[in-house]
Computed example of a mutant assay.
Amino acid sequence: MPLEQVHEQLHLRHPKRSFVQYRLDKPGFITPIGHHLSTAMRYTCLIRSISSAGAVLSINKTLTLPENFYLEIDGIRDEIPCTEFKREGEEMVVHFNMFLDTDFLNLVLGRRPAGQDA
């Protein structure tokens, strides 16, 4: 998968960090930087897979976006600052401007945070 290219580069700089890629297939929203509070500049996408370092998105191939933007995952109010890494047709690989916290990634994946009983 294309996200592995992001992981290869980051693993050299952060050898102790895990870059496990998870299939997500969840709707999301892209907000270009500079239009943070404007809903008129919010675009839909499908988040195909995600890791602590980045994601693979399906977007409209005719959509023109700046290199940097915010990604919001449907149902989660936090926005993730992203930078485009690679784009081919409808598929865009992004890397996050900072690694996702393990608890946040578990929330995105619908898992219980560590230490919580069923």
Rank of each mutant, 00 (worst) to 15 (best):
H14Q: 08
A114K: 15
L10F: 05
Q9F: 11
V93E: 08
L71N: 05
H11T: 06
F19H: 15
G110D: 04
P15Q: 04
T44Y: 02
A40L: 05
M98A: 05
S58T: 07
S52K: 09
V94T: 05
Q21I: 12
L57M: 02
E90C: 04
C82K: 06
P66C: 07
G110N: 02
L65Y: 08
R13E: 06
H95Q: 01
Q5H: 11
N97H: 10
R23V: 09
M1G: 15
H95Y: 15
I80V: 05
T44A: 09
I76A: 11
I50A: 02
M1L: 13
R48N: 09
M98W: 10
G89V: 02
V20A: 14
Y43R: 03
E72M: 06
H95V: 00
N106P: 04
Y22R: 04
F69K: 08
P81I: 01
G110A: 05
P15N: 07
E4I: 04
L37Y: 09
L12Y: 08
P27E: 09
C82H: 01
Q5P: 00
R23T: 08
E88R: 13
N97V: 05
H14W: 14
Q5A: 10
R111G: 03
L100C: 03
F96D: 06
I50S: 02
G28F: 04
Y70H: 12
S51F: 07
S52N: 03
S18G: 14
L105G: 10
F85V: 02
I50G: 10
V94P: 01
H14T: 07
T83S: 15
N106A: 15
Q5R: 05
G89N: 14
F29A: 09
K86E: 12
P2D: 12
V108D: 04
S58A: 15
E91R: 08
T31E: 11
E8Y: 11
S38E: 10
G54H: 00
L57R: 07
F99S: 10
S18Q: 15
A53M: 08
F96T: 01
N68L: 11
L57H: 12
S38V: 04
R112N: 09
M41F: 11
R112I: 10
A40F: 07
A118V: 08
V20E: 14
H95G: 02
R48Q: 13
F69N: 01
K86F: 11
I33M: 13
H14A: 11
A55I: 02
I47K: 04
L109V: 03
I47F: 02
M98G: 09
I47A: 01
H35V: 00
A114E: 15
R48S: 12
V20I: 11
R48C: 01
